[in-house]
Design a binder for these strands. Structure first.
Lengths: 193, 193
DNA sequence: TCGTGAGGTATAGCAGCGTTATGTCACACT
DNA sequence: AGTGTGACATAACGCTGCTATACCTCACGA
């Protein structure tokens, strides 16, 4: 019942339908009370939906295979992150409506850790000289997040993603100490969606 | 009456009070009908509030004086943009809830144009070699937007702004062709909030 | 075997929300 | 001076999330 409600809410979200208590209960085939026994109300259900969104994101990023080029991997992770957001824009927006209070922040942490570890491998491989992996991952994440939100909300056209994301990533990786030309090649290779 | 409603709504927004039709009408000292005669309902009022938010942003950016160092100016514009967002986080979030449909998109365009013109001056001054000013401005804007939203929503601590924003800007400016050391100095100089 | 208590669900009603239909008034124009 | 047009007030409608209450089911122990 818990999972049925969460998945139905996520489905209504991607279908751009308004996620309402009564509509949700009707579709799942139960009464409105179920949301209160399992989630303590709509805010609790939204928190569970955000949690599920981050869990899916973490699984998706974990599915990106690591290669012997950690910079390429970072770009591939960015591409997977972007694809996940573009495929389910409403869910992505809902995730960050209140991303600060998650029932279990570890799911979001796991997704972020994948980025940090790839950056750490780049440091270890001598690509990022004297760079902080957490800082590199944070900057990549924040920059990509902003670009994605602007595209999702229709401010920038969809083509802006392929136009700007690789350039921004290349700039960040080069600033981390990687050779600019080599960064550009790695990003071009990793950013295949 | 129109402006009174918009300003009251913006005030309730920054005060973190729920912006409700009845509460708004009561505070302004009118009835709920005023919102319908002037804005055709709450969505119209929200559009007007977003419009006002972008107008304030454009005025703020226009108030940043240009110097003989266009890269420094870009950093200063970024700092002003960030300060505006941090001072009125709820308004900033509301602005981008549906930034794609504004009554008069020219206000948002004016704010963006300030960025583009500074980037164009950097190209003209030979700092950004063969770089597209619009692309540079877009990347700066998107990256700053993402970082700001993560800080505003509490995902990243407030200190992340001063830690990451200058570094990201420096990376973008260096990628545009500017000398890395010179970019870093200009950004450090412009990013004074 | 038969209560019995506890947990999940159904029902009905609450206050609040945005919206709309209708009524009322003041002011500008001929 | 009459008239109509625009803005505001009032009341009601349907919807929202939420809660109090009743019901039903099932596991458990005398």
């Amino acid at each position: 019942m818990r999972t049925a409600l969460i998945e139905q809410a996520a489905a209504m979200l991607v279908a751009r339908e308004p996620v309402t208590l009564r509509g949700l209960a009707t579709r799942v085939g139960t009464s409105t009370m179920a949301v209160y026994t399992h989630f303590d109300g709509m805010p609790g259900l939204w928190a569970a939906v955000r949690q599920e969104g981050f869990a899916r994101l973490a699984r998706r990023l974990a599915g990106v295979a690591a290669t012997d080029d950690p910079v390429r991997d970072l770009a591939a992770l960015g591409a997977a992150y972007a694809a996940n957001a573009v495929e389910h824009p409403a869910l992505y927006r809902a995730m960050f409506d209140a991303a600060a209070d998650l029932p279990d922040p570890e799911a979001a942490g796991a997704a972020f850790t994948v980025l940090v570890e790839a950056a750490a491998r780049a440091v270890e491989a001598g690509r990022f000289v004297a760079a902080d992996p957490v800082a590199v991952a944070t900057r990549q994440w924040a920059s990509g997040h902003g670009l994605l939100l602007l595209v999702i909300s229709g401010v920038l056209p969809g083509a802006a993603l392929d136009e700007h994301a690789p350039a921004v990533l290349t700039a960040l990786f080069a600033a981390a100490g990687d050779d600019p030309g080599r960064s550009a090649a790695s990003v071009r290779d990793g950013w295949q969606r």
